[in-house]
Amino acid sequence: MTRASVIVLMVVALSVLYTDASAGSCCRKYTKGIIHMTFIKGYSIQTITRNCHIDAVIFHTNRGKNICTDPSKAWVMGNIRKLREKVQAISKKHSRA
């Protein structure tokens, strides 16, 4: 009885204090393949100057996946350039309208 209540208390305490830490989690490895631009809707940059220990570019796909890629690869930086151009084009279109 007491043991059960202790376990219940522990589970409650842990679940109350459980925070979604995945948002602050880091890439530890790079994806081998190449990610096609059509899948990507945005990107994030992970640097070793903060809480993570390898540099990485994280592409966010339309299906809500976060893909870790190697920033030293040419295609990764190419994708970023294209994404930036896309954003600029959109903002230009908005300013014209």
Binding site: S22, S25, C26, Y30, I34, H36, M37, T38, T61
Partner: peptide
């Protein structure tokens, strides 16, 4: 469309992405 002139082995047809690396989940550590 923004095609990128590299070969892609990123599986287009499958419902899941088999070869990608995602940020590590630290749920268990938390």
């Amino acid at each position: 469309t923004y095609d990128y002139p590299y070969t892609e082995d990123y599986n287009n047809n499958s419902t899941d992405y088999p070869y990608i690396e995602e940020p590590c989940s630290n749920e268990r550590i938390v």
